[in-house]
Design a protein around this nucleic acid. Structure first.
Length: 210
DNA sequence: GCCGTGATTAAA
DNA sequence: TTAATCACGGCG
């Protein structure tokens, strides 16, 4: 299946859940780095109070969300960068934020990019993952996935299957009484140590994979 | 969001 | 006693 179809043919929450366990890689021209997606969040467009596109807000900074499904949306907070993929059709500003991967490929290079940090600290958060890839700008923002050094492997034969995929409220969203703050739109592999905020006591054998 | 530090709690 | 968890302040 191609990216256009994959990122448009089902609801964004279903896409987000389906991405769990799929390989995500980034090629910096010298090294291929990456691993299996273990945590991701869905953002559901103009009605979603936690989405950058809430209320139809549109600016050069969040234009990526409005592009067709499969377009890369990179945004920055302070010195940190976040990797999203737009979902649904053009002008339907939904997307998925990739929050963490279990590192597999190019681990040595990722450790270098992370200033020597190793193990769980390598990629257990959205900005840590981007640091591990050595990304410090928005160069690939608005590029379509297939026209970028990023690759998400959509072949089910290459996917890792979690024993259990858990859901929770999204991280960093104000936990006020707002209905959207409490929606379970964060998906993650139960017991996988590379999931952000995962407690050691909750680690599972085989990192939660089947 | 990430990091380092120190306090608090839990395990053994 | 040690490890794990939590709480906090600093960062542009």
């Amino acid at each position: 299946m191609n990216y256009s179809t994959y990122f448009t043919n089902k609801p964004t929450a279903a896409i987000t859940k389906d991405l769990i366990g799929r390989p995500l890689t980034y090629n910096d021209g010298q090294n291929i780095m990456g691993g299996y997606i273990v945590e991701a969040e869905a953002y559901l467009g103009v009605k979603d109070r936690a989405a950058h596109s809430y209320g139809g807000h549109r600016s050069p900074a969040n234009e990526g969300l409005y592009r067709k499904g499969g377009t890369i949306y990179i945004y920055a907070q302070r010195q940190y960068f976040f990797f999203d993929v737009a979902t649904q059709e053009y002008n339907e500003p939904q997307g998925v934020l990739i929050r963490a991967i279990e590192p597999v490929w190019g681990i040595e290079q990722m450790i270098k990019n992370r200033g020597g940090k190793d193990g769980v600290l390598l990629t257990n958060g959205p900005a840590k993952m981007m640091q591990a890839f050595g990304i410090h700008d928005k160069k690939w923002n608005l590029h379509f996935l297939s026209d970028s050094p990023f690759k998400i492997d959509l072949d089910d034969n290459h996917k890792k299957w979690a024993k259990e995929i858990k859901t929770s409220a999204r991280i960093g969203v104000s936990q006020s009484e707002l209905e959207w703050a409490n929606k379970k739109l964060r998906y993650y592999v139960a017991g996988n140590p590379y999931v952000s905020r995962m407690k050691k006591s909750a680690y599972q054998a085989d990192n939660g994979w089947r």
